[in-house]
């Protein structure tokens, strides 16, 4: 397995507040990594440094090195638009655009200049199938995506990301706004996708991490306490803090 994404000594400051205190994590190609930890442990902040979404927030400083396929993504010559096509993101709140299901999924390709109707049709169908929502929306492709249920919306959002063929998919608590049935559908979608994509997901749901993740990183107070195979983290953690958190003694 090749390493696709590396981070070395990543610090993030909001003004004077140090939110991330030197994170070094590597991600291998394919498979799911879960980032867990109590609220305020800055796992979402870390996730958002990986596709530079933190750039949007005024007063943020990022130091250290993050490299995608060997290239420093914070280098001045980085093409942010190209980077985010490679590293897609799905958010906590399903955020389909107020267009049809089809237009949502075709959006990224159309922006990139793809006009061929047949090519678009094929990509849209494929992406929706990969996101395991095709059967539910295939008769409503030209209806507004906002008419779908929350779980369907979230899977359409996943399909929207898949349509631009990213290498890495970042998910920021993708199921925390959904009901249990929708959540489990998203989980099975992710389990399908782990064969082909590198998936990094932040979750507050420990069971979810243990069900779907190959590796798990435990964050606390802006630091990575422990990172290992998910089984090891849940069955036999090396650190006391991890064990306390896993067993529900705090957090």
């Amino acid at each position: 397995m090749a390493t696709i994404l590396t981070s070395r000594d990543v610090h993030v400051y909001y003004g004077n507040h140090e939110a991330l205190k030197g994170i070094s994590l590597d991600f291998e190609e394919k498979g799911i990594t879960a980032l867990i930890g109590p609220s305020g442990s800055s796992k979402s902040t870390y996730l958002r440094t990986l596709n530079r979404m933190n750039d949007m927030i005024p007063g943020v400083t990022v130091t250290g090195n993050i490299a995608f396929q060997g290239n420093d993504i914070y280098a001045p010559q980085t093409d942010l638009v190209a980077l985010r096509k490679q590293i897609g993101m799905v958010f906590q709140q399903p955020n389909p655009f107020p267009f049809s299901v089809y237009d949502n999924v075709a959006f990224g390709l159309r922006i990139a200049g793809q006009k061929n109707r047949e090519a678009l049709d094929a990509v849209v169908e494929n992406a929706l199938r990969q996101a395991a929502v095709w059967d539910e929306v295939k008769d409503h492709l030209h209806d507004s995506a906002l008419a779908l249920s929350g779980g369907q919306q979230q899977r359409v959002c996943i399909a929207r990301v898949l349509a631009v063929s990213p290498k890495i998919i970042l998910l920021d608590e993708p199921t925390s706004a959904l009901d249990p049935i929708s959540s489990s559908q998203i989980e099975s979608t992710l389990l399908q996708l782990r064969k082909d994509y590198t998936i990094i997901t932040v979750t507050h749901n420990l069971q979810q991490a243990s069900r779907i993740a190959d590796r798990t990183a435990f964050f606390m107070n802006g630091e990575v306490v422990e990172v290992d195979d998910t089984k090891k983290i849940f069955m036999n953690p090396a650190k006391k803090e991890t064990e306390d958190y896993i067993s529900g003694r705090f957090g």
Partner: peptide, 27 residues
């Protein structure tokens, strides 16, 4: 218009101007 729409556009690799003209204005 919710900020999640802006984030969605930027995360999809749209420039800020594209996000405004293709997503925020229509919405």
């Amino acid at each position: 218009i919710s900020n999640t729409q802006r984030e969605g556009g930027l995360a999809l690799g749209l420039s800020k101007w594209e996000t405004v003209t293709r997503i925020i204005l229509p919405a």
